[in-house]
Design a protein around this nucleic acid. Structure first.
Lengths: 146, 146
DNA sequence: TTTAAAAGAGACATGATTGTCTTTTAGCGC
DNA sequence: GCGCTAAAAGACAATCATGTCTCTTTTAAA
């Protein structure tokens, strides 16, 4: 019940870029990686996928970097999970039994089912914008410093 | 939100042995591995740890194998997680930020907190015996066949 | 048009988890 | 005791997620 590192980087990366929107037109990978204490190149791959999937925009060249678009704030966390490729985890049996389903449940199926439902509900109802709205003065703190 | 393979093997292994209690005095590793379609040697390591931690007993030699003891049925799933070494996951930040806590929460802290509480509650209130009690006629089906 | 700054892309390296094989050790029935 | 059988133990291999390095491509500014 911990997200993959990829997901964590993706979420924090988007939040960082979105947070700075207004302050500066674009945010460079180097800055994001440094501020979030995250491996630069690995983050690069994750960010690339976010751009490919339309969660963010980017521009090469001097004064380039990542910046938000119309969608960014409305993107559901569920979509981030799809992009970082761990959505199947939400529907595969917790014991990894392929034959597990409501009719032939594994021993933990019933107990876990409702929790997973809530979990999915959370991910598919929370957007990037929702997470930013809290407007804590120390928001940057909350996503930086591993 | 999927258990590690180790945990899955541990749980299914214990359940299989416990289920056969009464039918036969001891259950051999070969039989467990075959019935559960699980890699024999890897399962061996997991079972060894269960024995070391008192969840099960074992005996070497002819007519040897694994068998339950007084504790087995009362063992909480939480203990199995401790043995398979993934309990820290339950208390580390979902985004793996070390500074994350109630005072300085990560962006997902609040949302995830209550879910995790339920999750921990489930694991620390459910025993091996509880899972067996359902007494489905096809219980074996539910833990076999990956 | 040249230069430098930035993302993109792919090969390679590392680490943790998972899986296999071989040898050792111990209990049981004879 | 002796030999058989089964777990215990440890070395080794494969796989996958994660992390690093280098080169290429794109673009703005001079």
């Amino acid at each position: 019940m911990v997200f993959s590192k990829s997901f964590g980087y993706a979420l924090r990366g988007v939040l960082y870029v979105a947070m700075l929107n207004g302050n500066k037109a674009r945010v460079q990978l180097d800055e994001i990686a440094e501020q979030l204490s995250v491996p630069r190149h690995f983050l690069g791959k994750v960010m690339k996928n976010l751009v490919k999937e339309g969660v963010l925009n980017s521009m090469k060249g001097p004064y380039g970097g990542f910046y938000i678009n119309d969608q960014t704030m409305q993107v559901y966390l569920f979509k981030l999970m799809e992009i970082t490729g761990e959505v199947e985890e939400l529907s595969t049996c917790v014991l990894r039994l392929r034959k597990c389903n409501a009719k032939h449940p594994c021993p933990m199926h019933k107990q876990v089912e409702s929790l997973r439902k809530q979990w999915r509900g959370l991910l598919s109802s929370t957007t990037i914008g929702d997470l930013l709205e809290k407007e804590q003065p120390d928001f940057i703190q909350s996503i930086a410093v591993i």
